[in-house]
Amino acid sequence: MVETLITLAAILAGAAFLMALYRFLQGPSSADRVVAFDVMTIIGITGIVLVAYMEGRGIYLDVALVYALLSFLGVIAVARYLERGY
């Protein structure tokens, strides 16, 4: 049961990742690409948690913590650049 759920989660995350990647490459405006970047960050956290579960190592979750707390900074950097903030 759990195996099926994990497989399903991995497939869904992969599909979402591909869609976000398409938007990143195609996105007509800068805002589209920045939001696609942020979405891929969130899916990356999902990927880290999945890897931690499949390898059976709880300590991998520390990486997800760092990822989650720092990756939103990139989006703020681009947003501040676009509004001439620094």
């Binding site: 760092v66 707390l69 720092l70 900074l73 703020i76 950097a77 501040r80 903030g85 620094y86």
Partner: peptide
Amino acid sequence: QGGAILASGVLLVLLADP
């Protein structure tokens, strides 16, 4: 890693109030 995270905190302050 910890040093890079500390610097990221400094960076957030710089971004909010340049």
